[in-house]
């Protein structure tokens, strides 16, 4: 029963914040709504006994990615003619497509008879997850680390001022 109460509460938070992202016209408010979604999803991971994942979601997503996003918003905030409000036709088409897709997906999901749960409430402790990550899933793990290196170099390259508009050195 408690799981149900917790799930519906969290689902309300997640869905409400996601919908807040949809209707917000201010980019910083969208970021706040994203924080609600990310935090709610982290708590959902806790509810699904994936503690490590919930914590990683909080650290990397809410603590890292979201700060980078807010930072980006602040750096680009003075952009002239920021129109977050979509054109009416675009909004209408988007709404129709999304509602159609949602209706289709929900019908599909509810009608599918999923096989019964195999392992009810298995304890996913961190040591087990770490062993899996460094044995069974070692190749994807290494590939992700190479990708992260590439991203780091790429971001550093993109962030350096280009030759034309290099600002004079201030010393």
């Amino acid at each position: 029963m408690y799981e149900a109460i917790a799930f519906y509460l969290l689902a309300a938070v997640v869905a409400g914040s996601a919908f807040g992202c949809v209707i917000a016209t201010n980019i910083v408010r969208m970021a706040l709504c994203l924080l609600g979604t990310l935090g709610g999803v982290a708590l959902l991971y806790f509810l699904m006994a994936a503690n490590f994942l919930g914590v990683v979601q909080l650290i990397v997503y809410a603590g890292g990615t979201l700060i980078v996003i807010v930072f980006g918003v602040m750096l680009t905030s003075r952009a002239a003619g920021v129109r977050l409000r979509p054109k009416r036709s675009e909004a209408l088409a988007g709404t129709l497509i999304c509602i159609g897709l949602l209706a289709g997906l929900v019908t599909l999901l509810v009608r599918t008879a999923w096989p019964a749960a195999q392992s009810e409430a298995q304890a996913y402790d961190v040591a087990w997850l770490g062993n899996e990550l460094l044995s069974t899933y070692l190749v994807p793990f290494e590939m992700v680390s190479v990708l992260l290196l590439a991203v780091m170099i790429g971001a550093a390259f993109l962030a350096q001022p280009s030759g034309k508009d290099k600002e004079p050195e201030e010393r």
Partner: peptide
């Protein structure tokens, strides 16, 4: 918690927002 340390660090980071 078995992830107690990481949880505390994560909550430290959230206040920044």
């Amino acid at each position: 918690l078995d992830v107690g340390l990481l949880l505390i660090v994560a909550l430290f980071g959230l206040g920044v927002i």
